[in-house]
């Protein structure tokens, strides 16, 4: 995204707010290197005790699926109802299943 090599590159920031939870994308920032990206992320995105752990990755390394592929990628899951537990009937008396 930054055409000029003298600009600090763009990084995407992922914060884990509590131990045990997923790291969640919160936004982006600019930094010259990974260390600085983590420190900047700490100052920018965790000013209110939101953080337990930080991941940063250069934005250019993120590849995303194309919106126009959404149907072919995700619709095939629609008819696979047997992947969900509610698909199955079990005798009412059976417990813990």
């Amino acid at each position: 995204m930054s055409e000029n090599p003298n600009n600090w590159p763009l990084w995407e920031v992922f914060i884990q707010s509590k131990r045990g939870l997923d790291h969640k994308h919160v936004g982006s920032l600019h930094a010259a290197d990974a260390e600085m990206a983590i420190e900047n992320a700490r100052d920018v995105y965790t000013r209110r005790q939101e953080g337990n752990s930080i991941w940063v990755v250069k934005s250019e390394h993120i590849h995303s699926s194309r919106p126009e592929d959404a149907e072919s990628l995700f619709d095939p899951a629609d008819d696979k109802v047997y992947r969900h537990p509610t698909f199955y009937t079990v005798p009412e008396r059976a417990k813990y299943i």
Binding site: H30, M36, N40, D43, V44, R47
Partner: peptide, 11 residues
């Protein structure tokens, strides 16, 4: 010198 640093310095 850059927004990120401004925030860090204020911290």
């Amino acid at each position: 010198p850059i927004l990120e640093e401004d925030i860090a310095l204020t911290n």
